[in-house]
Design a protein around this nucleic acid. Structure first.
Length: 490
DNA sequence: AGACCTG
């Protein structure tokens, strides 16, 4: 079985290309900087990832043409041959959509994941796709472009649906869609909770927007109240798909919506995108989604090499606050910082502790009023605030290119077992160093055997070197760490 | 615990 998987590695596949794609160099020859197609842009130095696909449920494999060395291994299903799209021109998109890509998004050519996945998404028979790719490699563009390209502009009915784990992510994806689809005339609707004075579901008008992006609860509600018709839906996207299909995530809601659509339109297409798919979830989705094309990356190749990781052992909880205060707040300009905490209560506590000392920080978590959440996040995106304290509501997908530093005030662990949550760790780290920028992560640990062990397990899992800051209150050590990470001069 | 309008 391993042999057949080896055969479809994208690097090998290039030699057997029937119709050679135009080399990528041709499109970038005059530009010093290559723009990739996404808001959460590029880690183009990320290389060497190899798939750890198991060949389960793959009946046939066809050759994939891939002109470059690829960090992504693909297995295609069925007999459809796919040619990697080295240019957006290869995709037969409408002129209006092309204009959106070039004029609005200012893209020049597809990123690696886009070049491979877009033909799979767009080419009939529109097979399902499970796609894993690095943080900031351009996943959003893949599914937004996929949705836009498959919508019939003349049919005023919902045809594409995107489900996201958080309000913030739905909003962010909607912003990308509207920008990219600006010239297409395609209509879109956000399905997220509204502040209480909104219309009740029973009175709400039918959704006739062609693309709907939202969160599970609101979508479920609109569907059950018959306000969102599924009859014309042809493409369903799960952003952060591993979390959307995890037992401790949104599995029940996701499966319910999938079945509702399948009932009225069995030939609909499902796209699953995430930077992470642990073995449990991967196994589940491979059993759930029938006959999909698949793209996977090996876990140790997922970490961002542009982000340096550090750990510091603090004798007491209060010392963590002091580290933030003395070593981070007092630093001056190192760009924006997100401090991740485990609970909403600790978000409040850390916020108050720092605010009481006179520091200008903000915080977000799921218990806040929707409008306050929107306001805090917008302020941060507009760079009006420098330090944001957040629960894992922002761990995934949140794209703010000026975040250079991530602080793990608490390490991410599984709720039930206390085991490290490797996926959340990777997603948090992925908030820093976006757009290929330098970044750093400080992990603040208590002097506790279990905590130190969790950190070590994370290091082993990603085969990452997390350098220890030996004295928790040594200014010099933090400074040299930040210099090493490229965030501080001298 | 966190995220999600759970009725």
């Amino acid at each position: 079985m391993a042999d057949t998987v080896e055969k479809v590695s994208t690097t090998e596949a290039s030699s057997s290309s029937a119709e050679a794609p135009i080399p990528a160099e041709k499109t970038e020859s005059t530009t010093e900087k290559t723009k990739w197609g996404d808001v959460e842009d590029d880690d183009e130095e990320e290389a060497n990832a190899v798939s750890e696909l198991n060949s389960l449920s793959i009946k046939e494999e066809s050759v994939l043409d891939e002109p470059e060395d690829s960090s992504i291994k693909a297995v295609t299903s069925g007999e459809t041959p796919y040619t990697s799209a080295s240019r957006f021109e290869d995709l037969n998109l409408s002129p209006e959509l092309m204009k959106g890509l070039y004029v609005e998004m200012k893209f020049e050519k597809p990123s690696k994941i886009q070049a491979i996945s877009l033909p799979m998404i767009i080419t009939p028979p529109h097979k399902h796709l499970i796609a894993q790719a690095h943080n900031g490699s351009g996943k959003t563009t893949c599914f937004v472009l996929g949705m836009l390209s498959r919508v019939d502009p003349n049919l005023r009915e919902p045809q594409a649906l995107c489900i996201c784990p958080t309000r913030e992510l739905a909003i962010q994806n909607m912003e990308v869609l509207q920008k990219m689809g600006k010239f297409t005339g395609i209509t879109a609707k956000l399905a997220v909770p509204e502040s209480n004075h909104g219309v009740t579901s029973a009175r709400r008008a039918h959704v006739c927007a062609q693309v709907v992006i939202g969160t599970p609860g609101t979508l479920k509600k609109w569907i059950s109240f018959k306000k969102l018709g599924l009859n014309h839906l042809k493409i369903l996207v799960f952003d952060e798909a591993d979390h959307m299909l995890a037992t401790d995530g949104f599995r029940d809601d996701s499966l319910r919506i999938m079945k509702d659509i399948e009932r009225v339109n069995p030939s609909y297409q499902v796209l699953l995108f995430s930077a992470t798919f642990n073995e449990t979830v991967k196994d589940f989705v491979q059993r759930t989604v029938k006959d999909p094309n698949q793209l996977f990356v090996k876990r140790e190749d997922l970490k961002l090499d542009s982000v340096k990781q550090y750990k510091v052992v603090c004798p007491k909880e209060q010392n963590k606050i002091e580290v933030i205060k003395d070593q981070i707040m007092e630093l001056g300009d190192i760009g924006q910082t997100i401090i991740f905490v485990k609970t909403k209560v600790s978000a409040g506590k850390v916020h108050k502790a720092l605010a009481d000392m006179g520091y200008d920080v903000t915080s977000v978590h799921g218990n806040m009023e929707q409008e306050d959440r929107d306001k805090i996040v917008k302020e941060f995106k507009d760079c009006l605030t420098q330090v944001l304290i957040a629960t894992d509501v922002l761990a995934r997908g949140f794209d703010q290119q000026r975040v250079n530093l991530v602080v793990n005030y608490n390490l991410p662990t599984k709720h039930d077992t206390g085991e490290p949550d490797y996926e959340v760790y990777l997603h948090r780290v992925g908030r820093a160093g976006r757009f290929g920028r330098k970044g750093a992560v400080f992990n603040l640990l208590l002097d506790d055997r279990r905590e130190i062990e969790v950190m070590e397990m994370i290091e082993r899992y990603f085969e990452a070197h997390v350098k220890e800051i030996k004295s928790w209150n040594s200014e010099e050590e933090y400074k040299s760490a930040l210099k090493e990470a490229g965030l501080l001069d001298e």
